[in-house]
Design a protein around this nucleic acid. Structure first.
Length: 106
DNA sequence: GACATGACATAAC
DNA sequence: CGTTATGCCATGT
């Protein structure tokens, strides 16, 4: 026993459990936005904003309102001109959220 | 196991 | 507004 058999011990490559983060992101109301740090804290993971970003990156997004996730400054996380950025802006616009120059206009 | 990277945050300048 | 620095943690090399 030692390290094999411990439920807390992550297996090789630590695929961590994004359930909490997914839950929080899915709980974002329509027409609203949230920042990575905010989501991380709400998920019970203070200081792990990067984790949220990592999860979304690895996620198949489908069915997840990732387009409501922005940076702490209300800025979009994607680089300008990026396809994902346009998609996010387009989706937000559909919910009444206007984005100008990569910034969210409330 | 060290080093580099990243859909980040906050502070300082 | 811009960059630089520091912290934070999982991944990939």
């Amino acid at each position: 026993m030692t390290k094999s058999g411990d439920p807390k011990r992550r297996k090789a490559s630590t695929p961590i459990d994004p359930s909490a983060i997914l839950r929080v992101i899915g709980s974002i109301p329509e027409g609203a936005v949230a920042s990575y740090g905010e989501l991380a804290t709400r998920a019970g993971l203070p200081g792990r904003a990067r984790l949220v970003g990592r999860i979304l990156r690895e996620m198949p997004d489908l069915k997840l309102p990732w387009h409501r996730v922005l940076r702490s400054d209300g800025r979009i996380a994607f680089p300008p001109g990026s396809r994902s950025l346009r998609e996010q802006v387009r989706r937000l616009a559909g919910e009444g959220v206007m984005v100008v120059r990569g910034r969210v206009d409330l």
